[in-house]
């Protein structure tokens, strides 16, 4: 399908001040927002960066979140009289981390990362990914901690009574069960994270919103670029939701009777 001849013809008429019917006007705007000057390539670039940001932030968030959750749970589960002072100190640091991160807006955190801590860095996207990951870690930590606490205490007792140490019991028995319980909340957190990558545009990260904003400025029309990326975000969220449902069904395997 060649969109160009019709577009040029209609654009010509518009320039001449003609009143076009709605659908022709719509056609011109769509072409301008997505097709003229191969602008669709910019959206693709933006999507690539957005996905990259999501994956990196996700990795940081999950590793950080799991670590914090395990430390905090391990601290709370110590036998009285056998408390480890170093673990106590790390536990306090973890508490401070989750409190500060969850108590301040994501946007403010990104601005601080971008314009205060890494103000001389030009790699805006990586700084953004770091900020997002550290933010996400605090939420993942609380989700995972809730999940670990949701596993029946008898499971830990059974593992320990067999002579398994604390970390083996966590790794093979408690964490896999907790993971199944927290998958819905974790999935939601990941979807939120994916959408929050849009904030990285505020510190100059060249992701989807950044390009849409640029294109909107160029063609003096923000409606189609912004609605366009909204649709793109939605499509990805639908895909993620579908994947999440699939994974949940697989993990429910051991529940079948």
């Amino acid at each position: 399908m060649n969109w160009q001849p019709l577009y040029e013809q209609l654009a010509e008429q518009l320039k001449a001040g003609a009143e076009l019917p709605f659908w022709q006007d719509f056609y011109v705007s769509i072409c301008k927002a997505f097709l003229v000057a191969d602008r669709w390539q910019l959206y693709l670039k933006g999507i690539a960066t957005t996905l990259q940001l999501t994956v990196i932030a996700l990795a940081i968030g999950v590793v950080l979140g799991m670590a914090v959750a395990v430390i905090r749970t391990a601290h709370d589960q110590q036998l009285p009289g056998r408390r480890n002072p170093i673990l106590g100190l790390i536990n306090v640091l973890c508490k401070v981390y989750t409190t500060v991160i969850r108590g301040t807006p994501m946007m403010v955190q990104l601005l601080i990362w971008g314009f205060v801590i890494f103000k001389s860095s030009r790699n805006y996207a990586m700084v953004g990914a770091l900020g997002l990951g550290i933010n996400s870690g605090a939420y993942v930590a609380e989700i995972v901690r809730g999940g670990l606490m949701s596993v029946d205490g008898g499971q830990m007792e059974a593992g320990r009574s067999l002579g398994l140490n604390y970390f083996d019991t966590m790794r093979f028995i408690v964490v896999p069960q907790a993971f199944k319980n927290i998958l819905p909340s974790l999935g939601n957190e990941f979807i939120t994270l994916f959408k929050d990558t849009s904030l990285v545009s505020a510190i100059g990260g060249a992701e989807l919103v950044y390009y849409a904003k640029g294109i909107g400025g160029k063609i003096y029309d923000y409606m189609y670029p912004y609605i366009g990326i909204a649709v793109m975000y939605l499509i990805f969220v639908l895909i993620l939701t579908w994947l999440q449902g699939k994974l949940e069904r697989r993990l429910r395997q051991s529940d079948r009777r």
């Binding site: 029946d152 059974a158 593992g159 320990r160 009574s161 067999l162 002579g163 028995i173 896999p176």
Partner: peptide, 19 residues
């Protein structure tokens, strides 16, 4: 842990690992 390896325990609610 080394002591518990030599002392088995059976619980009221079985506590098998469902996963």
């Amino acid at each position: 842990d080394a002591i518990r390896r030599q002392m088995g325990m059976v619980f009221q609610h079985f506590n098998l690992f469902p996963n």
